[in-house]
Design a protein around this nucleic acid. Structure first.
Length: 349
DNA sequence: TAAGCGTGGTG
DNA sequence: TCACCAAGCTT
């Protein structure tokens, strides 16, 4: 690999992003978690809000999980927010509130895998660990023309070894400094030049040594095995209100989508169903109508959701399931909700 | 270990 | 419209 061309390209072309203006491992970690499976443009505002609300890892650890989820609302993959909060508490307990920069310590924190650990320690402390993310898979699969599927155990091993070998070679030539810069450069090249579609090979500093470009296989790299099908789910939400301006919500628990978020009481059916067939925990109510939402598409699910509007006299007088919370309707905005529920609450009427 | 986990952008 | 994707991790 032409390392000099790569780092020279990076110096002149990289984006100035807020998490690149610091070597604070806490902020770098925060940005890396936000950016997992997420575009920079989508994560930027969230990063600013998190840094503003939680200037230090101790501030984050001291917060309630619900507040962290509320700040994360709309970003998706909510386990990231729960793990972020849990990891902050681990940092306080294990490291006295000082975010670690030793790879093993970082890797041991909740929600941090091989990629994020390498990113944090190399960007913050220039530690010699190669990052292997989607960008790197793409760059290396083309540079070395590797056709092993990246979403297999064998593929992950092969790419990790290739990444390690390249970083080692770079470090030997550079006097064992600059791992962070090298990692940033490879990733940025993947993000701006070696893109999934229409890669800009003419502008690529590594084009001269790119095996896939020479062989004409750029469009076939990287190889991925397969995608899992999107299966449908049918959600019936009970939007219950009473004469005192109250409504009922509950927190999603268990290993399912939107864990930790709040929503109206839900009845899930195996297929589509009519309101009259749904079981309700009380009998004295008036059905005001139903709102069918557009198909809500997740990565592995398509949710068919209907919000049923129901009125009762006094929610607090009813015998309701233990996990229901009766709250003033005006306080709904205090709770983290899915985009689906947010869309319902903010829809045009 | 393959499947599950969100949302929004793009060609 | 639709497939594919965007700085992955957990179980």
């Amino acid at each position: 690999m032409d390392f000099a061309a790569l780092t020279d390209w990076y110096d002149h072309n990289h984006r100035r992003l807020p998490w690149r203006e610091t070597r604070d491992p806490y902020r770098i970690w925060l940005s890396e978690v936000i950016l997992q499976q997420t575009r920079v443009a989508q994560g930027l505002d969230y990063y600013d809000r998190f840094v503003g609300r939680f200037p230090s890892v101790a501030d984050l650890a001291a917060a309630d999980e619900d507040e962290v989820l509320k700040l994360w609302q709309g970003l998706g993959y909510y386990s990231r927010a729960r793990n972020l909060h849990a990891a902050a508490r681990q940092v306080v307990e294990r490291h006295g509130g000082i975010f670690p920069t030793a790879y093993a310590d970082v890797r041991a924190l909740k929600g941090i895998g091989d990629y994020t650990a390498a990113a944090v320690v190399s960007f913050s402390a220039d530690a010699p660990y190669p990052v292997v993310d989607g960008n790197v898979y793409r760059v290396l699969s083309r540079l070395l023309d590797i056709d092993t599927p990246i979403d297999t155990t064998a593929g992950k091993k092969e790419f990790a070894e290739a990444a390690f070998a390249l970083l080692a070679e770079y470090l030997v030539r550079k006097g064992h400094r600059g791992a962070g810069l090298y990692n940033q450069a490879v990733m940025e090249l993947g993000a701006l030049v070696c893109t999934p579609r229409s890669p800009q090979c003419a502008a690529c500093p590594l084009a001269g040594g790119c095996l896939a470009l020479k062989r004409g296989t750029v469009g076939e790299r990287p190889v991925k095995r397969g995608k899992t099908a999107q299966t449908p789910r049918f959600f019936h939400y009970l939007h219950i209100t009473d004469e005192h301006g109250r409504t009922a919500i509950r927190r999603r628990e268990g290993n399912d989508i939107w864990k930790g978020l709040y929503e109206f009481p839900l009845v899930e059916t195996p297929t589509g169903a009519e309101f009259g067939t749904l079981p309700l925990p009380f009998a004295d109510f008036v059905w005001q109508g139903s709102v069918r939402m557009p198909k809500h598409v997740l990565s592995h699910r398509i949710i068919h959701a209907v919000f049923h509007r129901i009125t009762v006299t006094d929610l607090t007088a009813l015998s309701l399931p233990d996990d229901w919370r009766v709250i003033p309707s005006g306080r709904l905005g205090d709770y983290a909700v899915s985009r689906l529920t947010e869309l319902y609450l903010t829809r045009d009427r």
